[in-house]
Design a binder for these strands. Sequence first.
DNA 1: ACATAAGCGAGACGGTACGTCTCGTCTTCTG
DNA 2: CAGAAGACGAGACGTACCGTCTCGCTTATGT
Lengths: 207, 207, 207, 207
Amino acid sequence: MTGQSKHNEETKTGESRGRPRNPEVDRVILEATIEILGQIGYSGMSIEGVAARSGVAKTTIYRRFDSKLELVLNAMNQSLAINEVPNTGSLRGDLKAMLIDSGGLMFLGGRGAAIVGTLLVEREQHPELLEPFHRLIFEPRQRQLHEIFNRANQRGEIDADADHQFVGASLFGSVVVSALTGRQLDESAVDRLLDNIIRSLSTPEVG
Amino acid sequence: MTGQSKHNEETKTGESRGRPRNPEVDRVILEATIEILGQIGYSGMSIEGVAARSGVAKTTIYRRFDSKLELVLNAMNQSLAINEVPNTGSLRGDLKAMLIDSGGLMFLGGRGAAIVGTLLVEREQHPELLEPFHRLIFEPRQRQLHEIFNRANQRGEIDADADHQFVGASLFGSVVVSALTGRQLDESAVDRLLDNIIRSLSTPEVG
Amino acid sequence: MTGQSKHNEETKTGESRGRPRNPEVDRVILEATIEILGQIGYSGMSIEGVAARSGVAKTTIYRRFDSKLELVLNAMNQSLAINEVPNTGSLRGDLKAMLIDSGGLMFLGGRGAAIVGTLLVEREQHPELLEPFHRLIFEPRQRQLHEIFNRANQRGEIDADADHQFVGASLFGSVVVSALTGRQLDESAVDRLLDNIIRSLSTPEVG
Amino acid sequence: MTGQSKHNEETKTGESRGRPRNPEVDRVILEATIEILGQIGYSGMSIEGVAARSGVAKTTIYRRFDSKLELVLNAMNQSLAINEVPNTGSLRGDLKAMLIDSGGLMFLGGRGAAIVGTLLVEREQHPELLEPFHRLIFEPRQRQLHEIFNRANQRGEIDADADHQFVGASLFGSVVVSALTGRQLDESAVDRLLDNIIRSLSTPEVG
DNA sequence: ACATAAGCGAGACGGTACGTCTCGTCTTCTG
DNA sequence: CAGAAGACGAGACGTACCGTCTCGCTTATGT
């Protein structure tokens, strides 16, 4: 009752009175959340279901997360963590690794589409969700892409003045479109996509 | 989809026995749907609420639309209708018109973000929704873009072998990213975006 | 939405629009309520439990009864119904029948104690419950007692100017006290009680 | 009941190791209990609320009282304490004093109704509560009544062989009935009640 | 004209999940 | 050890919508 103690981050902060939260509980909740998201999607997921699956009381979930969305963001934060930037020696290899290899989670693989979609849907109702999404999910990938481009630039593969953000958006847009049109991004589709990306990064001599 | 009388289109078809559907009822339902979508968003919207607002019985809505999403898609179809392809005489002008002028609804303006997001979220649970979305929302815009590019090509503004789909996806991706990051697409941002788009459409002679 | 439609009585009244309530549903709800009351008592009873036992949705119960207490009063009304006034030919016999024979429900037998206790507890929070209790439970028994006394009077067994209400209260008080002290009202206890009652009904010549 | 330190009485007993209980804490708990009982009644009262109002931790209350009812019984015991047996010189005066004067708490005044009602409701679920109620609340009043009757008997006001328990139950029953019917026991009602009581105590010579 | 058939409003019904509340137990820290 | 603080599992609360259903009424045919 003294103040704000939601979002487990806060738990560490503060003077810590009373029984401390069990970190194991955090773990099982987020794990169950990810599992369920992967199986029945965001809209089908219920907090009641997460409680049941994780063997934790509903109260305990609500004590930590104000809402379904908050819970999902935290869960995503964990499961979508970027471990390392691929470094295959070529731009094409790095991008391919990012799109396909990295744990199947890159961009919209796995449950990525669900969270991006959720954000698009809820961004007017809950604009406060944009910030954590941005910080936790978006920016890390943007930095990753930036690093890949920088290395390609140092190798002379691409031009220095390419607009990294636009190229990232192009890549992302293609992935979204393929998700929206129900087309799988198979080997050849990825190759074609990368052709386009790389071409647009090589500034034409004319212009 | 097996059904015999869902989706108002079907009403016209068939031998039409019994009391005919009141087309006015269609109108008020879709109108109320759009209003509510604009005010409280997709996830906050309930069919019960649409019934209340439009002064129509729940049964009547369910008779016409199988689900909330179907209802929303139909409503979107009306409000997002493309009236005409802009023809300003230049590629830049056409694209700008498409992004800004067309009723503020282009791509993700208005409630566009909600529907795209919804599709991303629901596409695994309800893949059958991709088809109507594709047909009603996506393809018309793709055709529009295609026509704009063709005209630009005829004017010699861009190269013939540009990948229209990829360019469209790039454009779309940028809009989605701006929606996800909470950044408005203002005049100068649109200009920068168009610079990038047009540059990528002018294939470098050197490969 | 048009008005007040709680309490199944109201269902019959009114113009009856929409799907009519299933009277069978009323029956099973009240039956389950009585069963549960008899087994685990008022405070242990939950509407959720009644729903489960009666195989009816919680919503359906709430549609008919505003609260647990309202539900219980209605259930009591059915199960505590007085069928007929005993008529054994003697005051003692009538009273004894009333106390013991009449379905085991007389006064505080069965779940009578529970409802009387509930009323005592809730009467300040929900004074509106006193009226239905009075009408449904209390007065019928008072009338029954009145009739028994009247017949005894006509037979010359007791004095005309006895205060029936006070005598009833004495009888009732004895039953309550035995409930509160945990003493069963066995054959001999009832006999002693009736001795006292009958004596107090025969006005002393001196006075 | 197995416990070694429940019910503050026990505190005094025992060898008393470790930090002694703060008797002030007992006081504020019971005080808060009474206050809340008087304001929102038994069923509305929560131990959580008592803790909040008394500024004491929930643990502290549970350490002293096993249950809500135990707590209430103890609180009642304090506030319903009988200070002295009225001795006005006449049976009528003594009874009147008992009913009206004694702090407004006699029998079912104040929160008496709540506790009696609670006992009636809970007596099957928790028969162990009957004993403390009997000891703390019931018997003292029975003894008081007994003494009043004995004095009246010595003064020759009433007959020796009157059944004190039955008369007490009659008195009690009348009070309960007035509580159940929502009728206040005003001056004239008390007078009428006492008329009846006293008459029934004067055994008719003719039988 | 009049049966046939569907449209429509109204609301019951079985469900599911919501987010809140209180319960009683527990664990930890401070004095 | 007492006491404050709060985590935790448990489970009921009353509400909101869901999608289906059963009514009574209305409104167009097609014979």
